[in-house]
Design a protein around this nucleic acid. Structure first.
Lengths: 233, 233
DNA sequence: CGAATAACATGATAAAAATCATGTTTTCTG
DNA sequence: CAGAAAACATGATTTTTATCATGTTATTCG
């Protein structure tokens, strides 16, 4: 991980919600941004606290999770370089409804609330991208909601593995998922008990669909996994 | 239900996402809007088709639902006068991911896509309200997602009844939910089997929390229902 | 390095929820 | 209005999933 440069030359600039933002505003953001590194396991913000701005991931991985009423974690989003977080609460005028924790050492730029809001008001391009982002997230949430309500855990686990693949891709070998998640985190992504996730992962392994080596998960038969996920869309 | 007037004088104007929109744009919308009445059970749009604009409910009630992979309905939103629908797909540049069906005779105004988008680009007030709306919906979806993953059906049913109350309120008597939903629809809102919803409603009745008279549901003990929903937030 | 702790794994059991079956009531429709 | 269809209700059964228990393997940290 190298030092962050300017927003203008940021490798993620055209890969993020800021892709359509005017140069003039990108310059303003560059001047006021505050870059920071969060070590693996560190918290960016906590559910219940007030947002003071948005975070833009330069490099690394972050999980966003809710605390269920009984204290159980539910992971609602996985974020990577180019992703922005913290906007939901800010736009709703709410406290954070989720906590953000780094899954590995992660470099993020913080953009203060007032600046973000004022740019959003002056730059329709950014505003539109923001609406698109929100709409896409809403879509994803609604699909997940339907699957949680209707699909058995085995299918949801298969789907989750494919989702992790979509989000973080593979390592150089082309088959190992490029993120390390505990079985508990996988369970909290699927929405099930940790033991159930472990058990089904073992089944997938027995069926030859995946290979397990500690937290390294290799996808051996993506097609069968897709079948196991039973996706129509 | 009376004839729709102008958007300028619409009873829902300041009750909707258009509350902050400039008069100039409201006038434009008024000129191009197309009003329509949908009978109970009629479909406004279907999952999979392309959006040509957004719908603004003047009077009535609408359900938005997904089709699960196995064909089972999942109701993702309940809408009432003042609510707008169809924007998610439009902003994502997608097809509709849900179908909209009138729960009773409903009057809606249709605003063509191009007009809506162009106003959205020129009116930051409207754009901001739209972002707030999307953020709020996203929030709701994420909470529901967590509850689907973590809470037993009994709690979710209690929560659903309270949600219906929040959305549609009571009839004049102050205790009867102001909407008629079939047991199957309630189940599809809760995310459970119809029989389970029926069974638990009977339990709630036996416990004296609700009174059932066909599709009329009376909330007798709201406090106990809140307790049964086991809400921390 | 080695003890302590956390994560992983798996079997046994219990609880939750879906499905199946059947009968009743309500609603729709000719 | 009567017959048909749909919705509602409830018991019995099966399936799914969570929980509990216990042992093993990794990780962390002094």
């Amino acid at each position: 991980m190298h030092e962050p440069g300017t927003c203008q030359s940021c490798s993620q600039r055209f890969n993020s919600v800021f892709c359509k933002a005017k140069d003039e505003f990108v310059n303003q953001i560059n001047e006021q941004k505050i870059c920071n590194v969060y070590k693996k396991g560190q918290t960016l913000f906590n559910e219940g606290s007030y947002p003071f701005g948005v975070y833009c991931i330069n490099d690394g991985k972050i999980k966003l999770s809710h605390q269920g009423d009984d204290g159980k974690e539910q992971i609602i989003r996985l974020l990577k370089a180019g992703d922005v977080l913290g906007y939901r609460a800010l736009l709703s005028g709410d406290r954070y409804s989720a906590s953000a924790v780094a899954l590995e050492d992660t470099q993020v730029c913080f953009i203060p609330k007032d600046l973000f809001v004022s740019v959003l008001k002056m730059d329709p391009g950014l505003a539109f991208e923001m609406m698109k982002l929100l709409s896409d997230e809403l879509h994803r949430a609604e699909i997940k909601l339907t699957h949680l309500a209707q699909k058995p855990i085995r299918e949801r686990l298969a789907e989750t593995l494919l989702f992790i693949k979509e989000t973080y891709g593979f390592e150089q070998d082309g088959i190992t998922l490029n993120v390390r998640l505990s079985r508990e985190e996988i369970a909290n992504l699927v929405g099930t008990a940790t033991e159930s996730a472990i058990r089904l992962l073992s089944e997938f392994k027995k069926d030859g669909m995946v290979e397990l080596d500690g937290k390294k998960i290799k996808i051996l038969k993506a097609k069968e996994l897709i079948r196991a996920a039973n996706l129509q869309d």
